[in-house]
Simulated assay, not measured.
Amino acid sequence: MGLLTKGLEIEIYTGTPQGQIIGLSDRIVQDLTGFVREPDSRNVEYTTAPFQSYDRLLCAILRPRRQLRQYLASLGDYTLIPGSCLSLGGGQVFYRSDPQNPYHSYIEQTYGPTVVTASVHINIGIADPEHLLQACRLVRLEAPLYLALSASSPFFDGRVTGAHSSRWQVFPKTPPQVPLFTSHGHFIEWTEQQLQLGTMQNVRHLWASVRPNGDNRPYNLNRLELRICDLVTNPLHLLAIVALLEARLMQLALDPSLDPLQASSLAPDRLLELTDKNETLAAQSSLDATLFHWQDGRPIQARDWIEELYTSVYPLAKAQGFSCFLSPVQTILRQGNMAQQWLQQYQKGISLSVILQQAIFDTEQEEQRLAEDLCLPALVA
């Protein structure tokens, strides 16, 4: 078995080193290739090509970001801002990036600023549509674990929200009810029905924790897209989350009996109730959340479930040569995700603005170090 292809869609805020988020995407998209608008101008998205190699994927994460930083500096005192919510303010308004786009109009009118978040979407290539739908079933039930690892939005509008992922707590999952698709045919039939009912405006308007993806959805599919993760600005931590997902999908390919429709004692409707509850719990408390395992409904702490998953897939990752990229999962479990680290600082009396300013500085320094150490030839090519 060879490595799977994996690509990332990364949304990130732009603003000042003081943490003020400022919309610049219209200028970025006009002047730089490889960046696309989000409906609100305060964040911008770039997409990596799909790679099997983790080394190449690391540089594909870093190269556009370094280019974007240089461009922002040419405009003024601007930078990239970590976190998945409008941490210090601006959460009550919507700044249209493309006033002429009717889909953006629909999003603004329907959802407002609840969708003005930053995140990472992880795409893993799976060519066979039935295997892909099987993978989606498993990953959907385990998606709360990836949210727990990635949570980075404990602040919103200048206050502590009480949640570790304020983004996923408010993000409008659409349509509200999405089944566990039993086959590719089921997915096609369901999607066509949603488009007829108007619960989806187009084939992209499926905003769930995970979805099948492809160039001609729902008919031609070639990848699983995990959409639940908050923005992870540390590239090595992000690759570790990708590696955990890839290793789990490899494990499923080798042992199809891991399919929840076979391996769970719970009925599909109960599985959906359970995973919705787990997503809410993970958004609230991330690694410290007590979740409920899809196999039998037993309570288990997210941290312990991830540790079990890590232990089960590590030999496979090692045999495939990417265990070194998987191992930072242990660092996240030990040190906490970004939300937990920020909250620890806040509990010590550090203000939200100072926490964010330090994170902005640390993020840039980490990127520069990794780029110089690992990707300099690619960055200057």
Results as ranks from 00 to 15, higher is better:
residue 376 L to G: 04
residue 169 Q to T: 13
residue 49 A to L: 15
residue 380 V to G: 02
residue 247 A to I: 09
residue 345 Q to E: 11
residue 298 R to V: 07
residue 113 P to F: 05
residue 80 L to H: 04
residue 51 F to C: 14
residue 134 Q to T: 14
residue 139 V to S: 02
residue 129 P to K: 10
residue 58 L to Y: 12
residue 211 R to H: 11
residue 122 I to P: 09
residue 43 N to W: 00
residue 212 P to S: 07
residue 176 P to R: 15
residue 113 P to V: 02
residue 318 K to D: 15
residue 72 L to H: 04
residue 244 L to E: 12
residue 89 G to I: 06
residue 354 V to M: 15
residue 194 Q to K: 10
residue 180 L to S: 09
residue 135 A to T: 10
residue 75 L to S: 14
residue 114 T to K: 08
residue 229 C to N: 14
residue 308 E to G: 07
residue 28 I to L: 14
residue 132 L to E: 04
residue 245 L to Q: 11
residue 340 Q to V: 00
residue 340 Q to C: 02
residue 93 V to E: 15
residue 319 A to M: 15
residue 210 V to K: 03
residue 226 L to I: 06
residue 137 R to V: 07
residue 329 V to N: 07
residue 312 S to H: 09
residue 125 G to A: 05
residue 194 Q to N: 09
residue 247 A to R: 09
residue 156 F to D: 12
residue 83 G to P: 14
residue 2 G to A: 08
residue 251 Q to T: 00
residue 102 P to W: 00
residue 344 Q to I: 00
residue 137 R to I: 07
residue 188 I to G: 06
residue 301 Q to V: 10
residue 78 Y to R: 09
residue 70 Q to R: 10
residue 281 L to P: 12
residue 371 A to N: 00
residue 27 R to D: 14
residue 133 L to D: 06
residue 368 Q to D: 11
residue 371 A to P: 00
residue 247 A to C: 12
residue 117 T to I: 13
residue 159 R to S: 12
residue 279 E to W: 07
residue 335 Q to C: 13
residue 46 Y to G: 03
residue 21 I to Q: 02
residue 227 R to V: 06
residue 169 Q to N: 12
residue 72 L to P: 07
residue 177 Q to V: 11
residue 218 P to Q: 11
residue 373 D to R: 03
residue 247 A to H: 09
residue 314 Y to C: 06
residue 64 P to L: 00
residue 218 P to C: 12
residue 275 T to A: 05
residue 155 F to A: 05
residue 330 Q to M: 09
residue 20 Q to Y: 00
residue 50 P to M: 15
residue 133 L to V: 06
residue 228 I to A: 13
residue 340 Q to H: 04
residue 182 T to K: 03
residue 26 D to Y: 06
residue 302 A to N: 03
residue 152 S to N: 11
residue 145 L to C: 06
residue 215 D to P: 08
residue 117 T to S: 13
residue 370 L to T: 05
residue 192 E to T: 00
residue 45 E to K: 04
residue 150 S to D: 10
residue 289 A to L: 14
residue 143 A to P: 02
residue 124 I to C: 01
residue 56 R to P: 08
residue 268 P to W: 01
residue 352 L to I: 09
residue 190 W to E: 04
residue 201 Q to N: 10
residue 218 P to H: 10
residue 277 K to D: 11
residue 127 A to V: 09
residue 163 A to Y: 12
residue 197 L to C: 12
residue 298 R to E: 04
residue 292 F to M: 10
residue 285 S to P: 07
residue 51 F to H: 15
residue 187 F to N: 08
residue 11 E to A: 05
residue 159 R to E: 13
residue 109 Q to E: 01
residue 229 C to Q: 13
residue 18 Q to P: 02
